[in-house]
Every structure is written in C-alpha cells, then in structure tokens.
Design a protein around this nucleic acid. Structure first.
Lengths: 342, 342
DNA sequence: CCTGTTTCTGTGATCGTGCACAGTACCGAT
DNA sequence: ATCGGTACTGTGCACGATCACAGAAACAGG
C-alpha cells in the first residue's frame, strides 16, 4: 500500500474490497446492506477485506443508485431570534442530531429567514436531496409544512400545527394539561387572583396553555377576567413588557402564570423593579424548565417539557415515515418542577 | 404535463432538459457550470427548458462525478453543555449556516461527545463526504484537528488552536487586546484591586485573556497577585463558584474581570448573595457580549466578540481552502461595550 | 485554397453503488 | 432420476451528472 506524499489517494471502492476478499461486488454489497444471502466464509473474508482496505461506503454513489439520501433536514422556518435565544431549541437540535447519528444519518441544518430562503429550501428538499424533514415552526398555518406534505416528503413537526386538515405528524408536549397543573399548583399555594402572560396566540403553545389556565379557573369557580391576560412573544424582553402591562391593568394580582421560562425571567425582573417580591407578593409559574429557569433568582417553578423525549420521538417517527409507515400525532406529558418562585 | 395522483414523479434530469431545449447534455452541463462555451441561442433555450421542466441538479450524481460533495461539516468536538448553553455558539452556528446558504452549500451538524463519535465522524469526513470542516473546539491539543489536517481536509477552526506547529487555519477574536482594554476600563473607573475569573487555562481564550489582564496590571505598576485569580469553566454555575472562592481568598477586591458573560452572570448572582452591590462595591467586567450580558441586572459591561464577522470569515476562508488557496490565521478586534456593571 | 485559431456542440466513457436477474450448488421429497 | 425450493454468487445495467475528446462552423491571415 503506497502512500503518495502529496495529494489524496483514491479511496478504496467496493470493487477493491471484492478483489481483496476474493468475492464479487454483489456479495460485498449484500454484506453491507443487511448481510442476507452471504455465506459465513464470504462474510469473514469481506469483513477482513474491509478492515484491511479501510473501505467506507461512498454515500453519493449509493444515493444515486437508491434514490435515497440517508440524510435528514432540520428546518427552522420561524423568526430565528425567538428560537435561537431559547435554550430549548438547543436541546431539541442536539437531541435530534444525536439520535440521527445513532442511525448514521447526518443532519442538515436549514434556516429559513426570508421568503427567498423558504423557496430555496423547499426546492432543495422536494428535489429529493433529503429523505425527510424535522420541522420547527411554532407558527400555525406554515405554508412550508403544507407544501412538503403535498410533495409527499416525510415530515414531523415539533408542536401541534394548528391548520386543521393538514394531517402533519407532530410531537408536542401536553400544553393544556401542563397549564392546568401549574395553575392548580398556584391555587394550592393560596393564590386567587392569578394573571397570565401567554405565548403568541397564533401558536398552539399560546392557545392551549391559555385554555388550560381557563379550564382551572372555571373548575375552581373563579371568574375569567380578560384584564388579567396579556399576550407575549416568548422572548425575555417581551416578558418584561407584558409584565408591566399586566401590573398596570391589574395591580392586585397575587400570581402570574407565564407561558415560557424565558418570558418568566423577564417577568421576575419587572416585578423586582416594581418593588414586589417573588414569591411573597406575587408567585410566578413558568413553562419549559429551560436553562433560564435556574438562571434567575428566585429559581422558577415551572412545567418541564420533555425535550429529550420529544426529539427522540420526532426522530423515531420520521424514520418510520421514511420506512413507509404512517405516523400520527404524539403528545407527551409535562411535569411540574417546584422551585422557589411559586 | 400529467400529475399522477399518488406517488412521486421522477424528477427531470439533465437529459430531459437537453431534449426539451434541443441541445445535448454537454451543453446543458456547461450552462450549469459557469456557462462558458455556450452560444446565446443555446443559453436561452436551456434557460427556458429548465424553467419549463422545473429541473434541479441532482447533487448526488454531481458529487459522484466530480468527487466534491458541495457540503460542509460544522463539527463540535468539545463537551457540549458548555457550548450549547452559550448563546455565542448559536450566533456562530447561525452565521455559518446563513453564509454557506448564500453559496448554496448545506451545513451538516456534527456533535462529537464520545471518542466513538470522534472516530465515526472523522471517518465520515475523511472519506470525502464533506468538502471541508468548520471546527469548534476550545480545547487546545484536539486530536481531531490534527487528524483532519493530516488527511488534507480543508479546515478552519474557531479560536486559535494552542498546538504550536499545527498549522491549522483559524479565526479568533483578539482575546489579549480585549482583556487589556477591559482591565484598563476598570482602572479608569478608579478600581485598583482587580480580580479575575479566567476560562479554562488549556484554552487560548483562557490563557490570552489572563495574559491581557497581567499586561495591564504591569503597565499600571500594580502587582500581580495569584490570590486574585481563579480558574473557571465558562459556565454560569462555574462563575458562581469561582466568585465565591475569589471572595474567600480576597474579600477586599473592588472589581472582577470575568472571561465570559455567562460566568459573569453567575458572578453577579454570587456577589448579590454575599451582600455586595454591583457596581458600587464591586465592578464586574464580562467578555463576549452574549445574550447573557443584558439578561442580568445590572446589565454587563463587556467586550463584544464579533461573532457574525467571525462566522463570515470562517466560511470565507474555508471556501478559499476548498478552492485550493492557502489561508492562515485571522484575528478580529473586540469592542468595549459599556453598560451598568462597570 | 490552405492552415490555424476560436467558439461552440455532441458523444461516449466514467464515477461507485444497488438491484434485477441468471445461474450454480445443495438438500430433501417424490 | 426428477423436481422444487432454498442459499448463495456473479454479471450487466441503471442512476444522473461531469469531463475529455473529437469534430463542426466561422473567421482571419497568408
């Protein structure tokens, strides 16, 4: 085996392995793809030849031949600041990357900021350069989702898409149940005048958590007061602003349920600035159990979203779809994490 | 143009375009790759045919033919918690993704947590499935970097690799200059007993910022007191712990220079808990100007690292290397951002 | 008219796989 | 002896592009 000093050597092909092992290309190919119909002797020979030559399958050639790409896109179609400053996004991205890596499938990161991007990436995806798409798009009527679905591209969304007949597989946390549990917790702490800062109301996370809040108020026989509810944007600064608006509208609240930890961190800030103490004057309940929850003082009581399980489930479902199976929506339970803020 | 109800239609190939345009495959191929030696008439015909057929080049076929992959890996080889909780990582990742997208090059996200991962990914990369690598690895003697370099894979690292003869291209911020500027700022504010919490001392960011700190002390005629220096780990909790250790060793400090905003946020917390006020009792200077800087109260005075420029430069250099040019190291200036903490 | 240069075009050959297919060898049942 | 089935193996073609090459056409200079 000669090593030329400069330049790269031509990597070994399946043909080299076959020659080395004294079998045909077909046998090596079968060995690589499941190993059916390969005699034990041939198997050993091929294994040895692969080790000796350092053969690695050429994925481009394979893709050309099979039509598959053995790669998956992670597509983010929404305003990216929102997600990129959200620690949960990282957990999700990382979880998906690692799960896919276990199947030896690389993840292509795609960010669609502009309509131009959306067109370009949709085109890229629908041209078969990717076997499937993991979609993160809080926005409800995302045209990209519909387009990909219509093109028959395997697709799993993170969070329930609001579009009714869309029939897109998704993995989501139990937003409504989680919101209920949090508000019940606030009630159990003796709070009665409970405000809420919601997420954007065109997202399922926005509406469902609000619905859970209303559920429990009704259940407890408390009136629903629109003045106690302010819409936020999932961002920290948005949380601060929303909190100030809420305090102006309803200075007498004794608790706030905030639809995300990042906003909740901003809320705690705003409350401190207004001279209230958390949780003595006002209890704060968050949502997500993101890194922001423990970064703030007092540490947030919050609903944990199982992002590691969500990413695992997304990958599992996507691979199932790629394999030709049908998948539906999955909703995973959230968990109350009690810390200091409520 | 018939649209079959179910299943996917075979996407158009270069052959379809050629037939539609009344030219040969070769002409279409030339048109696609630069357009030299294509007559105006042929050009127009091909353009029309591409529009009509909706042709998109099959990258697998192209890669098989050319040996290029037209894709790039973004490789993170270090303990990932550290980076994933760091907002700068996001900015960098996003910047690289967007820049590459402008060149129509997808980014493959690769996370190497275990040695197994490192082997697997190195193998993947060196087998030619990727044209180049953007490497994030604060650790100095990263074996992956050396291995990729030896294999002749185009490579650009974020942050200066410490290994001396390694000859790896990199893009880094001016850590030492930045540290100097920050410490001068603290001195200008009347502080004299200035502590420092460094990054890990096996990273260039760790040692260079410490060096800058010592530079300015010497310059100002102040003694260097090892009791004022504590090594941190770039993490928030690490910042808190380091701050407590520093206060125990040197309760009389009037300022701290902290090597990252994330740690600085933890430091501010710890100082508050110990009853000191920031910046009245103790001024805090950060580094990075990450999202953490404005999330904490008081907002951090910090050195801005130009991560958008860093990512742009990394991509530019990597593409240059892929095109066969040689590239060296680039150091970009930092900028003092004065807020409330110092 | 010949020769050379430039611009343009089409024709195989080739990249490294997977897959369909034909073919062999062996086994047990008839 | 024949047949059918199963386990295994090798050959040729297809996948969709690039690229080298040969050749055509147009033009200029002698």
């Amino acid at each position: 085996m000669t090593t030329s000093a400069n330049g790269r050597r031509r990597p070994p092909t399946i043909h080299d392995v076959a020659r080395e092992a004294g079998v045909s290309r077909g046998t090596v190919s079968r060995f690589l793809n499941g190993g059916h119909y390969v005699s034990p002797a041939a198997r050993r020979a091929v294994e040895a030849a692969i080790r000796k030559t350092g053969y690695v399958v050429n994925r481009h050639a394979r893709s050309l031949s099979t039509g598959r790409s053995d790669s998956v896109a992670f597509l983010l179609t929404e305003p990216q600041e929102k997600f990129f400053e959200d620690p949960n996004f990282n957990v999700l991205l990382r979880g998906c990357t690692e799960r896919l890596a276990q199947h030896d499938i690389p993840l292509l990161l795609m960010l669609a900021a502009s309509d131009d991007d959306r067109r370009r990436l949709t085109r890229y995806i629908t041209s078969g350069h990717v076997d499937g798409v993991l979609l993160v798009s809080s926005h409800s009527g995302d045209p990209v989702a519909a387009e990909l679905r219509d093109a028959g591209i395997p697709l799993v969304a993170c969070g329930k898409p609001l579009g009714l007949g869309s029939k897109v597989s998704y993995v989501a946390a139990a937003d409504r149940d989680g919101a209920q549990e949090m508000v019940r917790h606030l009630l159990a702490g003796g709070r009665r005048r409970i405000g809420m800062i919601t997420g954007p109301l065109d997202t399922p996370g926005g509406t469902d958590r609000l619905a859970g809040y209303r559920d429990v108020l009704a259940e407890a026989g408390l009136p629903y007061d629109p003045a106690l509810v302010v819409e936020g944007d999932y961002r920290r600064t948005g949380g601060e602003q929303a909190a100030r608006r809420l305090l102006a509208q309803a200075p007498d609240i004794d608790a706030v349920f905030v639809a995300s930890d990042l906003m909740a961190a901003g809320v705690v800030n705003a409350l401190h600035q207004s001279g209230r103490s958390v949780p003595d004057d006002i209890a704060v309940g968050g949502f997500d159990d993101s890194a922001a929850a423990t970064a703030v003082t007092p540490a947030l009581t919050t609903m944990r979203q199982p992002y590691d399980r969500i990413s695992a489930e997304m990958v599992r479902m996507l691979l199932a779809q790629i394999a030709g199976e049908d998948t539906a929506g999955v909703i995973l339970p959230t968990e109350l994490v009690v810390r200091d803020s409520a």
